[in-house]
Design a protein around this nucleic acid. Structure first.
Lengths: 130, 130
DNA sequence: ATGGTCTTTCCAGTCACTGGAAGGTCAAGG
DNA sequence: CCTTGACCTTCCAGTGACTGGAAAGACCAT
C-alpha cells in the first residue's frame, strides 16, 4: 500500500531529498513497507502536491504547516487562511519594493560606467563613497 | 592608531558582529592594539563603508570581495566592474520577475477567498489541486 | 554471482549573519 | 583598592530550506 519515494517525487515534482526533509520536520508522515522503504498513500501524495504548490507561491515552511493544518480542519474559517495569504502578500510586496530600489540604483550606476578598458569606474567611485 | 570595533560599527553602520565576521572571512584586516582589541584605520573604515554600500545593493559577499579587489587595483578595466554589476542586475531582474509572478497568483487567490467565518476557501481549494 | 538501480541513514555544507556564554580590559566613582 | 558597567575578546550553535555525498541495505534482471 503506497508508492516509493521515487514515485512520490515523480508525482509531486519534489526531489526525493526534499520529501525526506519534509518527513524529518513532520510535514508528511508516510508509512513504512516491510523492507523499511517509505510508502506514500493517496493522502501523503496530496499533501506533497499541496506543499509543492504552496512553496512555489513562496509560503514559508511554517506557513505551509499552518495551511496544511487548516486544510485538514473542516471547521477553519476562510478568514484564517486569507490572513496568512495576505501577510505573505505584504512580505512579497516589501521584497519587490526592496529589489526594485536596488535595481534602480544599480542600473543607474551601470549606466554611468563606461565598461571599457579604462580604469575609471562610476560604480567603484560610488561604492567608495565619492 | 585606529578606532575600536564599536566606533567602526557606528561609522560604517554595520553591526560589530558583522564586522568580526567580515574579518573572519578576510574582507577586512584590522590591526590589533596592545590589549588585543581590533584597531581600524582609515583604509579599514573605507573598506567597511564600501562593503555596507555594496551589500545594500544586494551584491553577494563574493562579489563584494571581487569589487574590493578591483577597487584596490588601479589597473582594472571598468568593463570588469561593469560585468559584475550587470550580472547582478540580471539576477535581480529574475528575482523580481519571480516575485511578481507569485504576487499575481497570490493576489488572485486572496481575492477569490471570502475571508469570512465560512470554511470554504478558494486558496485551500487551489493549493489542494481542485 | 553480478551489476545496476533503487532505497536507507547520517553528516556536512550552503549564505550571511545573529545570539549567547564565558571571560578579559578599561575608565569612573566611592 | 574595589566595584560597577560598558566595552572588548573568542568560540559555539542556530537560522531556512534544502543539497551533496558516503556507506550500506534491498530489489530485479541476467
Amino acid at each position: 500500500m503506497g508508492v516509493s519515494i521515487g514515485e512520490a517525487a515523480a508525482q509531486s515534482g519534489l526531489p526525493a531529498k526534499t520529501i525526506r526533509y519534509y518527513e524529518d520536520i513532520g510535514l508528511v508522515r508516510p508509512l513504512r513497507s516491510a523492507n523499511g522503504y517509505r510508502a506514500f498513500d493517496g493522502k501523503n501524495l496530496q499533501a506533497l502536491e499541496f506543499l509543492a504548490r504552496a512553496r512555489s507561491l513562496g509560503f514559508s515552511i511554517e506557513e505551509c504547516r499552518e495551511l496544511l493544518a487548516f486544510q485538514a480542519d473542516a471547521e477553519r474559517a476562510s478568514a484564517d487562511v486569507k490572513r496568512v495569504a495576505v501577510e505573505h502578500l505584504a512580505r512579497i510586496d516589501a521584497k519587490i519594493a526592496e529589489l526594485t530600489a536596488m535595481r534602480r540604483s544599480l542600473a543607474d550606476l551601470a549606466e554611468r560606467c563606461a565598461g571599457n578598458e579604462t580604469p575609471d569606474c562610476a560604480i567603484l567611485r560610488t561604492l567608495a563613497g565619492a
